[in-house]
Nucleic acid binder design. Structure first.
Lengths: 193, 193
DNA sequence: ACAAGATTTGACACGCGCGTCATTTTTCTG
DNA sequence: CAGAAAAATGACGCGCGTGTCAAATCTTGT
């Protein structure tokens, strides 16, 4: 495996990502990927043995990226309230972006029940986010920006709301206004008490 | 179509429901249903032309049932706080029942459908629930049980949390304790202010 | 330039799910 | 009870997705 091979594998991964975004998880066939990549059937199997294998690799790449984004957000040391507001804005953008997200594919994948929970991408993301928010709230309380008895519960609550909004966005449709109202409600509760 | 036919159709519907619960939506084939019903392939096609048609019928039956359950809950005129607590308990039971629910199949189905929002089962359920909760909160405020500035926002918030818990239960796993804590958090916010 | 090695191709065989329909079985009716 | 009508059967043809592999093509080293 030279760097040539690695580059091609990366190309396939990135192309497949677009396919998963467009068609979800279950609807994607090797043929779809082959055509999107403009390579041969056998060529694809040289790198990935199944759509599942491919999707796992795409997810891992995605996790890498979003982890970087998280780190970047944490580095900025504005006030906790500002950072939290920014975080909510990011989430809003993400969950309203129906045409350019792996969310549906990821859910579909998670629904498939016969596989190890070891690599549970969703859970990991969720727990990470809870930790970050909890930390923000605790800081906010310390500097007097927030009022909150139980930062952990509050953080988890916020994440459940976001999960709810996310799944709602992809199953029943959610307007930008609704999301705004919900986000405002979340912030307001922290600032009021 | 005599009543005999109708009875058989009902039998197929109920049997198919179990299959959808067990295998989700996308993984169900006509063969699965045929085998579960112990009828012939052609026999099934006499009643349903596709798994989609079948699932829609199952959903409709399900909606009928839960609507009845809702009505029943509303009839009881205990105090708003009690009714809300009861409602949350019901939701908890429902979302922890991983092995006996159409939730996953319904999500999978919702992911597929692009156009007909007309028959959006999830949205309808959600909006109905918001209305009920909003009403409960308003009543609760009136009799002094609850403190809440914006019952509509609060109600919607509760439902988003429940949605978040629901999807979490089926994708990352949620313990009973977690759900309890979350429910308590929701109630507490209404009683404190 | 040439051969050995590495890479890529796409035709192929296989399995599966679908929807049909000629045939058989059951039920109805006079 | 016979004949008609209705209901049920399951074998069949079709399309599609899968994974493979011998052959073709491209890359190296000399």
């Amino acid at each position: 495996m030279g760097k040539k091979s690695e580059r091609k594998k990366q190309f396939i991964r990135e192309t497949a990502r677009k396919v998963f975004i467009e068609k979800g998880y279950k609807n994607v066939t090797m043929k779809d990927v082959v055509e999107a990549c403009e390579i041969s059937r056998g060529g694809l199997y040289l790198y990935y043995g199944s759509t599942t294998e491919l999707f796992l690799d795409v997810l891992q790449m995605e996790a890498q990226d979003t982890d970087d984004a998280f780190s970047e957000a944490v580095v900025n040391n504005a006030s906790p309230a500002d950072i939290l507001a920014l975080f909510l804005q990011e989430q809003k953008k993400e969950l309203l972006r129906k045409e350019d997200t792996l969310a549906v594919a990821t859910y579909e994948f998670a629904f498939d029940r016969e596989k190890p929970d070891k690599e549970n991408y969703l859970l990991r993301q969720f727990q990470e986010a809870v930790l970050i928010i909890e930390h923000l709230i605790t800081e906010g309380v310390r500097v007097g920006e927030f009022v909150c008895d139980d930062p952990h519960a509050a953080a988890r609550n916020i994440m459940y709301v976001i999960e709810g909004l996310k799944i709602s966005a992809h199953t029943m449709g959610v307007t930008e206004q609704t999301v705004d109202e919900e986000m405002r409600y979340l912030m307001q509760r922290l600032t009021n008490g």
